[in-house]
Write a protein that binds this DNA or RNA. Structure first.
Length: 724
DNA sequence: AGCACGCCGACT
DNA sequence: GTCGGCGTGCTC
């Protein structure tokens, strides 16, 4: 067997095992040096390039779960070739952690047991520790599928794959058991009718359910894209297919989960994201792989879920950077989703109010189908009015008089406000007004952020935390000034201004867990809160019906950034946060404080003109040969040694230059920030108008880099990098 | 990656 | 004569 193992080596490893073709895609336990590793069988062979006496025998082949199918294996091969990443790391990291270890963790106390019935043997995953469940299972098998109702319900919720395994073996009839569960649930609600734009979008996508079509579903926040997803999912389910819905963040799954569960009661639905317990994640994964789960919601990692009857993929908020992984296999879940859809000849829907310029460009060029929802779904919910507020000297703690005035009006009317500032902490830096000392991180080339509660300095890159000094460490001056604004400072300012108002701060420091964010959101819905102060954690997905004002404190940081995507991101973020204002009959207002009120980005924002903004940006991108008009690959290198990372990128550049056909090889530059946790970071950009030429170069270049053998340098290739 | 080996200097 | 620092090379 040719086995993919989680080691940074490009090839597979050969082992002896008694297998047949049906075992391709199965997990195996193999001896590897001194260790035993779980790998995946990618192929069978009669002979090996490795000497026969060096071949070892596999310890065991896991036949308790279904093998990975050809389709998902092809997706892995794509990731290996396109992202130039070792196959073993691709394959094994696509497995849920519970299935990566020798002793599979399938749930609390779960393990594989062998059941026998009339001469047939079947390995199933169950709770052997729970004698009751096991006994009920045996009873069920003997009685031809009749089980106590509560046991069925417990099984269908906690181990749907077990039901399917039993059914596949012909030991029970799963339909009957599921029916017993679904009978308890009221009839599905009749879905709301789509408005004409939604209907047109639905028709355009639903007419090609057995073709590969990428549809860019473009509609402002609140225009009802989710309703289109729901209708498409219903259509997909009706055809006996599974639907995969990808969202950018874990925070967004509970809300979407509830929406889908309410619309499709009795339909097995699972969620996949990194915050699930190991057992839950393995269970959900297996439920999807076995075909029991019909709807799969998840973050980027869910794009690798094996789905035997996949019929639809939705990528919601497709422009969101969270779809790109920034370590290990640096994949874009959106792009992998598109590749999967292409392989399967199924539709993929990219939803966004502010599409990425890549997707927008593809839609304009006719490569993607464009479906647009022009109006908000609720008829009288007009788009919010956007006002640009020029910042002046008269702004204590960075909040301008017009913003205070607008907040006061909302308080008087009993409406809610959101003050958006994308910086946590009290102030981004502490400064000595006498000698110019600033609070810098000793391990990073970054500033330490002041956090108010215990007067601490924290590095947001390496996590270092120290007590803030009482006086300047350089000159002894006791008058240290916090410079700039963070959520804590704005919160403090607003408490002073509006002492009787209920003010709630929501950022990563206050809403660290999923549960606490949800409790905050519940409080907002309960109208318990007058003013929300928060970072982008609040900008996404959540509907706050009583919210009529959004104030953006500082939008300038990324306006004149060196990153060519900074403006695109800022615009998307402002549109997104603006979309929180005004729903259901209450016109919303958005105030944006800026030192550059004449910047064209704000004119586009004011008029809600994504297309105008995008067209102007695309024009600039074309002139400067930036994506989407070119493709990029970034070589990143870091080392504890000052010179080593630079030298590696220099030698890599020298190797690339003779290989470069239609590819531009830039000079190495320091990454931003240049040092994190004492590691010096350098990077080298390759760029080409031709994706295939770039790939061609990588095919020969990357193996050369591997032999450049700089032991003290950690390096990685990032194909289609999002941040430079 | 993770592990062993081997080379070297520093100590009982 | 042994312990342990890390540079090098292999894992089927």
């Amino acid at each position: 067997v040719r086995v993919a193992l989680d080691v940074p080596v490009d090839s597979c490893f050969d082992y002896l095992a008694e297998v047949d073709r049906g075992d391709i895609g199965r997990r195996v336990l193999v001896p590897f040096g001194k260790r035993k590793l779980v790998g995946v069988i990618l192929g069978l062979a009669q002979e090996s390039g490795v000497a026969t006496d060096k071949l070892k025998a596999a310890v065991r082949v896991y036949r308790d779960t279904q093998p990975l199918d050809d389709h998902i294996l092809a997706v892995f091969a794509f990731c290996r070739d396109y992202y130039h990443h070792p196959i073993g790391e691709v394959v094994v990291n696509a497995l849920p952690p519970g299935l990566r270890r020798a002793k599979a963790v399938l749930g609390r106390g779960m393990e594989v047991v062998r059941l026998t019935d009339a001469g047939r043997a079947l390995d199933v995953t169950t709770w052997p520790a729970r004698a009751v469940v096991k006994r009920r299972l045996m009873v069920a098998l003997q009685a031809g599928g009749s089980m106590p109702r509560d046991a069925i319900r417990a099984l269908s919720r906690r181990a749907p794959c077990l039901l399917r395994e039993l059914a596949d073996a012909g030991l029970i009839r799963v339909e009957r058991m599921l029916a017993a569960v679904t009978n308890d649930i009221s009839d599905p609600p009749s879905p709301p009718t789509l408005n004409s734009d939604q209907q047109a979008a639905f028709d355009a996508i639903a007419s090609g359910l057995s073709r590969f079509v990428v549809t860019l579903l473009y509609g402002v926040t609140g225009s009802g894209k989710t309703e289109v997803y729901l209708h498409l999912t219903a259509e997909t389910l009706a055809r006996g297919r599974q639907a995969l819905i990808l969202v950018p963040e874990i925070n967004l799954t509970p809300q979407l989960e509830a929406t889908f569960r309410a619309r499709f009661p009795g339909i097995a639905q699972i969620s996949l994201h990194s915050k699930l317990s190991e057992g839950e994640r393995a269970q959900s994964y297996l439920a999807a792989q076995s075909g029991v789960a019909r709807i799969v919601l998840g973050t980027r990692l869910a794009v690798f879920t094996p789905l035997p009857q996949l019929g639809l993929i939705v990528v919601d908020e497709e422009q969101d950077a969270s779809f790109k992984q920034h370590e290990g296999l640096r994949y874009s879940a959106r792009d992998v989703a598109i590749y999967r859809a292409k392989l399967l000849a199924i539709p993929v829907v990219l939803g966004s109010a502010t599409p990425s310029l890549e997707s927008y460009h593809n839609a304009r060029a006719g490569r993607y189908q464009l479906a647009q929802i022009r109006s908000r779904a609720v008829p009288d919910a007009a788009l919010p009015e956007v006002r640009i507020v020029a910042t002046t000297g008269n702004m204590p703690e960075g909040v301008s008089p017009p913003v205070l005035q607008a907040l006061r009006e909302r308080l008087e009317r009993g409406e809610q406000s959101l003050v958006f500032i994308n910086r946590r902490g009290y102030a981004p830096v502490l400064l000595c007004g006498q000698c110019g000392w600033i609070s810098g991180c000793p391990r990073c080339s970054a500033r330490l952020t002041l956090h108010a509660p215990r007067h601490r300095l924290r590095c947001h890159y390496c996590g270092l935390e120290t007590a803030a000094p009482a006086a300047c460490p350089e000159c002894g001056n006791a008058d240290l000034r916090p410079v700039g604004q963070g959520t804590q400072r704005i919160e403090a300012r607003l408490i002073r201004e509006f002492p009787t108002a209920s003010i709630l701060r929501v950022d990563r420091d206050t809403a660290s867990s999923k549960a606490s964010l949800q409790s905050f959101i519940d409080r907002v819905h309960g109208n318990d809160v007058n003013i929300l102060v928060g970072t982008q954690i609040l900008a996404k997905g959540h509907d706050f019906p009583g919210l009529t004002l959004v104030a953006v404190i500082n939008a300038d940081a990324s306006l004149y950034s060196s990153d060519f995507r900074a403006e695109e991101r800022l615009f998307a973020q402002l549109m997104q946060v603006a979309g929180r204002a005004g729903r259901a009959g209450l016109r919303g207002e958005v105030l944006v404080q800026t030192a550059f009120p004449r910047h064209p980005l704000f004119a586009a924002l004011k008029n809600h003109e994504f297309a105008a903004f995008a067209d102007a940006q695309l024009q600039l991108r074309r002139e400067h040969h930036f994506p989407p008009y070119t493709y990029q690959v970034l070589l990143r290198a870091e080392s504890l040694k000052q010179e080593a990372a630079l030298e590696f990128t220099q030698r890599a550049s020298a190797l690339a230059k003779p290989l470069a056909k239609n590819v531009r090889v830039f000079d190495p530059v320091p990454a931003q920030p240049a040092r994190i946790a004492a590691r010096e970071r350098w990077q080298l950009l390759l760029q080409s108008a031709s994706r295939s030429h770039l790939q061609l170069l990588l095919n020969t270049w990357r193996p050369q880099l591997a032999t450049l053998a700089a032991r003290d340098v950690r390096w990685a290739i990032d194909v289609d990098p999002l941040e430079l």
